Simulated assay, not measured.
Amino acid sequence: MSRQDPDIAGFKQQLVEMTKVRESTPPSVEAQRAAFDGQHGAVPPAEGCEITPIVVGSVRGERITPKGADTSKALIYHHGGGHMFGSPLSHRHLVSRLAAAAGVVAYNMEYRLAPEHPYPAGLDDAEQAYRFVLGEGFKPENLIVGGESAGGNLTAALLLKLRDLGLAQPAGAYLLSPWLDLTQSGASYEARGPHDPMITHAALTGCSAAYRAGASAEDPLISPAKADLAGLPPLFIQVGADEVLLCDSLEFTRRAALAGIDVRLHVWADMVHAWPLFHFALPVSGLAAIDEAGAWISRQLRH
């Protein structure tokens, strides 16, 4: 499907031009957050979705209920943004479409960001969000957790933390272009670097330093690609072949398979980082990937 996308070449060129501007005049963290929320927050959510804010203690986010959804089953989603930007607003349009494709409720969750709130603040918030959704009456076997990029990092780390705490795992996890190795040591930085118009080694190194704040990148809760994955639930991973982060997904898949986990990896040819987030510019591949993820989520929750 992705090889036939008529929009990918033009989209990549736009990303190259945007990256040049950003590198010539680096924006502040505050400006980057505002721009990202402004761009993606302007994209309307999927039609027929009811959106309800969540403000309960330290838990922040929103509940998205598509028309006709099975309200006994849910997706808990952690947005991306290098652990430094992104919000429920920026990802509402994507999460609502994932929920609609899966036919479930979605919890589009907020978490504290670096550099103001480095590790483990975001992971602690993800754990609290998971406990909150359980408190809403959902059974673990009726939940999928997911996220893209840094949100995929939090999702994988959350699974490890739940396991180590002896808490029930969800029915599965969906990872989109996950950032799983903050040591930045994968071979894809060199092999796919010339093809990636969006993400650079230098940019990720800066985000890694801000998130870790001195903590070791070898810590499996910071770099889940370094972890023993035994005991994790089924996994579905989507990643673009033109991402410098490709090796993160390859290594995580390898470790999951060796641990006996049911894991599915789909590497989309020609695709860039987190392309379903740009479904409005890449409707062929973006919406196809959303439909694929929704179908997997639906199958995992069918019991």
Results as ranks from 00 to 15, higher is better:
Ala102Phe: 04
Leu162Gly: 12
Phe138Asp: 01
Pro170Asn: 09
Leu159Arg: 10
Leu176Tyr: 06
Gly137Gln: 15
Val105Met: 06
Gly146Ala: 12
Ala126Thr: 14
Leu123Cys: 04
Asn142Ser: 15
Asp164Glu: 14
Ala173Glu: 06
Lys139Ala: 15
Pro178Trp: 09
His78Arg: 06
Leu89Phe: 00
Leu160Tyr: 01
Ala150Asn: 07
Asp125Arg: 01
Glu148Gly: 15
Phe132Ala: 10
His83Tyr: 13
Gly152Trp: 07
Ser96Pro: 10
Gly86His: 01
Leu113Trp: 03
Asp164Gly: 06
Arg163Ile: 10
Gly122Trp: 01
Tyr130Ser: 08
Leu162Ser: 13
Leu158His: 05
His117Phe: 10
Phe138Glu: 02
Gly135Lys: 04
Glu148Ile: 05
Phe85Asn: 09
Tyr119Met: 02
Tyr119Gln: 03
Gly86Trp: 02
Leu154Met: 12
Pro140Lys: 12
Leu113His: 08
Asp164Thr: 07
Arg112Glu: 04
Ala106Trp: 09
Gly80Asn: 11
Ala157Cys: 03
Pro140Leu: 10
Glu110Cys: 04
Gly172Ala: 14
Leu159Asp: 11
Leu89Gly: 00
Phe138Val: 06
Asn142Gly: 15
Leu113Asn: 05
Tyr111Arg: 01
Leu98Tyr: 09
Gly80Ile: 10
Pro140Trp: 12
Glu127Tyr: 14
Ile144Val: 15
Trp179His: 00
Pro118Ala: 02
Leu160Ala: 02
Gly166Ala: 08
Val104Phe: 08
Ile144Asp: 11
Ser90Pro: 05
